[in-house]
Design a binder for these strands. Structure first.
Lengths: 116, 116
DNA sequence: CCGAATCCTGTTTGATACTG
DNA sequence: CAGTATCAAACAGGATTCGG
């Protein structure tokens, strides 16, 4: 076993942070998860809700989230074809994180963003 | 007052998410904050602790965090000159967020990162 | 309607060397 | 020690077009 790292150390925290970063990083992943927290959605619905994301980026980021088991993609073979995206349990497990994230975003907005 | 947005709506959440993103985005900001949560540190200490950040990136990101009132920079005019960085109250207000971030990072690591 | 494919651009990031 | 300067590489993001 190579160099065990204790839970309390800064190094441990840095690693955990990097892991979380790996999945949630970028301009669009958290917005997408927020959007899907609201309920399962189709491609176009997510796009409209987020507002200014190009189909390319949305497609690309959805794929990445799917690979990381954060969301699932379900194809309904209707006419025309519809696709629905929804959070997996792992995806839903971000809810506490998201909540704090949003709380802090609001706090920060009030402290700083408003004053410039 | 232009188009009030209720707290519970997806749109409100998307905006708060974007605000938080604006400050915490990028590969290095959260690691830097984690490092400083551990205590005030000097430039070189942060760099060694994070491990593979170039001085240019560190300098640049520290500057951005300072502009957003997340950290402060204190110059001690000793010989040789030393500089210490520390979290502001606003910076320390990320602690709950960080905690959830790290908790989830660990969870994710166990679920996914370990299995690939 | 839901994307895939292509092309193109600007920003981010990094390696390295150097300065007060 | 605490950064800056410079140059190159990588990547994020956008515009557009096309297919099932």
């Amino acid at each position: 076993m190579a160099k065990a790292i204790k839970k309390e150390t800064c190094q441990y925290r840095l690693i955990a942070g990097k892991d979380a970063m790996e999945v949630l990083q970028g301009k669009w992943r958290i917005p997408i998860i927020i959007s899907l927290t609201d309920g399962d959605k189709r491609f176009g619905e997510i796009q409209r809700e987020i507002g200014n994301i190009s189909p390319k980026m949305l497609s690309q980021e959805l794929k990445a989230l799917e690979e990381n088991k954060i969301i699932t993609r379900t194809l309904y073979d209707s006419m025309p074809v519809t696709v629905e995206y929804s959070l997996t349990p792992l995806g839903r497990s971000t809810d506490k994180l998201l909540e704090e994230f949003l709380k802090w975003g609001t706090h920060f907005r009030n402290e700083i963003v408003g004053n410039r």
